[in-house]
Design a protein around this nucleic acid. Sequence first.
DNA 1: GTCTATAATAAGATAGAC
DNA 2: GTCTATCTTATTATAGAC
Lengths: 227, 227
Amino acid sequence: MISSATAEPFRSLFTLLAALRYRKLSDVLGDSGYPHAVVRQRLGTRSRTAAQRRVLDAALDLIADHGVSGTSLQMIADAMGVTKAAVYHQFKTKDEIVVGVTELELAKLEEPLAAARAESDPARARKVLLTDVIDMAVTRRRWIRTLQNDPIIIRLLGTHPPFREFIAELYGVLQGEEDDTIARVTAALFSGAIAGSVVNPLLDDIDDETLRAALLQMTTRMLNLPD
Amino acid sequence: MISSATAEPFRSLFTLLAALRYRKLSDVLGDSGYPHAVVRQRLGTRSRTAAQRRVLDAALDLIADHGVSGTSLQMIADAMGVTKAAVYHQFKTKDEIVVGVTELELAKLEEPLAAARAESDPARARKVLLTDVIDMAVTRRRWIRTLQNDPIIIRLLGTHPPFREFIAELYGVLQGEEDDTIARVTAALFSGAIAGSVVNPLLDDIDDETLRAALLQMTTRMLNLPD
DNA sequence: GTCTATAATAAGATAGAC
DNA sequence: GTCTATCTTATTATAGAC
């Protein structure tokens, strides 16, 4: 079972985005100038049966509401209309289910990441990826809070190598060369503003398109990217 | 036991700050021009025995790391070096412990709230309170994530009347008169930026004073308050 | 205020039939 | 792929002695 007893310093997707240092990847820099893991397996490529997908869908929904610790296998089975044993036939442990749903979410950024790395201009690449990160934060906003703040998932993002590597790569593209305090505070405010605002019920009645545009405009200015 | 099965639309301290509308309190406006509950009991005034305080201290520490659902009575007892039965002698249920620790944290803003309401100029009152809210977010940063995002606490903040009333009053002072979309997006970005950045490990080595000053400067501008 | 002991229930997980 | 049945452990919670 997943335990958060020995908590990691890294605590979430967006905070990892801000915490992982570009220079830590300098030994795996490609000739494009962007960091990349040499053999990293793309997230979300493993094949899932229909039954497995049903489990992950139900789990995703419940975990978004109750958190990982607050979601039991019984709750997942009930939501699916089957027994616990049927769920265990698809995934050997609860851990695997948690890894599965997290992978499902992170995988949504694999294509945007690849597209950004195809850009020749680094500033343009950051802008492209930033747009997609915001887009995901907005469209998947119900999940962002859990992905960012659930103690079990925080730990998973810091310990599960495929997740660590993916986030490091993502960050490598998003992060510029600046390394001073102002840049760090700006990055922190930026990630906090995105993650915090998309889960804010005050903005529930604002349509996705408007919110996306407002966030992009503000964060673009914060990161000094071209419009 | 606390269940988050029927989740509330309100989801956290800062999002409640942004979500509760000033006009909903118009019927309880005092002559000072600030909203207030007529008979609201101040949080944190109930007396606690030394043993109760030890329980709450241990619970606070564990819940900050593992969340409410991830923290058992056994863990609390172990941290205190006593048995579960000793813990149950101080609090009849786990719920009461969760309410207790949440109250302990919110109570830290009771005095700042009273001080702000003593100001004659509303803009000045907002500035004073904002300063204290940021100060709490910075100094209690380890707790902010749980207070903001734990599913059980989110539910508690929306359902427990003393918490609802306190937050409504707090928000009444912080919120200006503006009611347009821009103001709402700004408020959401503001609360997200504060809450998100103080828990960002990228800023772990920045001392409290510097972080406090940077946050105050930025959020003051966002809210169009006087320096 | 703390203990041992115990209850009732739910958790994660497995075996084997259909 | 799903079921019933079961196991083990952990959970919230209580009773009663010291």
